[in-house]
Simulated assay, not measured.
Amino acid sequence: MDALTATLSLLRLEGIGPSLYWQLVEQFGSAEAALRQPATQFPRKLPARARSQLGEYQRLGCDSELAQWALAERQRCVENCIYLLHCDDESYPSLLRQIERPPPVLYITGDPLALSLPQIAVVGARRASRAGLDNAEAFSADLAAAGFAITSGLALGVDAMAHKGALRGAGKTTAVLGTGVDRVYPQRNAALAEQILESGGALVSEMPLATAPEPGNFPRRNRIISGLSLGILLVEAAVRSGSLITARLALEQNREVFAIPGSVHNPMARGCHHMIKNGAHLVETSADIVAELGGLLSGMAQQPSLFEQVADSGPNLPLEQRNLIVALGGDPRSIEQLARDTGGDTGELMASLLHMELEGLVEQLPGGYQLTGSGAKALAGLVE
């Protein structure tokens, strides 16, 4: 039995995850050798079903339930044009192989070579602010134009905007799933997943085909997102969030971690501030990231930052909108504060803010307004 079939068979045993898999391989030398050991030799007690499966494998070999499932899984992958990469395969991503107990097997839809491109992970909140979503898309587009592939988790919010930004920057992007690669989740991002594949990117998972989106799968996939990447950009995140777990994993994996600071009044900025206090690089433009990691893109021309290309948006705005943008600055402001700072009439200010909201320059929050990413660019143009 070859290494891939033996690995799939061992992982199919009930109660075997990547951690116990690697303990067994380290103890016995290979997945096939582990499958031939008595259950009493395993470092932890197996469930009754797993002991039954293991005993049957040792009696029947390739005719056992475990081996038959592994062979059928391989055939399903062939029929659906899904690549299976064993951790000992030369094509297995070298950065991912370096992490502690990497995925023994990767399922890949799309181009497997996309996983070996220099990658930056972009992660953040599902319920990010408009400014956070704008930043995720703009930074990702800029980094993709500079030659980096963008890695994220295909979730709603920041993840989806990161993938979209990479596509807008004419780059490649990899989506790491917490489901089987044949079961895109969330379903509303199915069209985005197709665009990722059409652009030469990839969907990747360590989960068997048809795996459902169980909550426990997503912390596991986070180590793959960070493990594939040279560095990770945290856009917005609460202090207790999956995105912050990914950032912490990146630090443990000796990856560079970057975080965009935000308003002290924004709870979604607290995770970024926490990581900055604990060693993450504070970044204000994508050029900060390119300056840190761009040397790894030997021979590739770096594109100017989207945030340096302000496009003179300030002077083209009506005077009242320019005044509002300056008054908003970097923090959320109430309508009363804006009226006081600009000297404007409340009714007229609300009309201007409505127009600016429709133009994507501001967003409304409970009790006030704040600039979006586009609004922040306009502010940069006004204060230069």
Rank of each mutant, 00 (worst) to 15 (best):
A141C: 12
L203T: 03
K45C: 03
Q364H: 13
S94E: 10
S334K: 10
A351I: 00
G180K: 11
Q23H: 12
E26G: 14
V362S: 06
L293N: 04
L84D: 05
G169I: 08
L46F: 08
T285W: 11
Y92F: 14
A351D: 08
R36L: 10
S298G: 06
R97N: 04
L85A: 00
D288P: 04
A247V: 11
P104E: 07
G368M: 05
G360C: 04
G124L: 01
P43R: 10
N217V: 10
G242D: 07
A160G: 07
S64Y: 10
L84F: 05
S140I: 01
V310C: 05
P103V: 04
S226D: 11
A380L: 15
V264L: 15
S52H: 10
E65P: 02
R74D: 03
V290P: 00
P102T: 02
V264M: 15
V326E: 11
E256Y: 08
L167G: 06
R322S: 02
A327N: 08
A247Q: 03
L354T: 08
V176T: 08
D312P: 07
T372N: 04
R76P: 07
C87Y: 14
E284N: 14
A138W: 07
T174S: 01
A202W: 03
S9R: 06
L10C: 12
G201I: 12
A3S: 14
A162I: 03
Y369Q: 03
G373T: 02
H274D: 15
G200M: 04
A70K: 02
V264P: 13
A237L: 08
P18D: 13
L382A: 01
M356T: 01
G124F: 02
V158P: 10
G343A: 10
G344N: 01
L85G: 05
G329S: 12
D88C: 12
Q187G: 14
R76S: 14
G29P: 07
G368V: 06
V122S: 08
L249Y: 14
M356W: 00
V105R: 07
A380C: 09
A67H: 07
S64G: 14
P267G: 15
A212I: 14
A380Q: 11
F307K: 13
G153T: 11
A327Q: 04
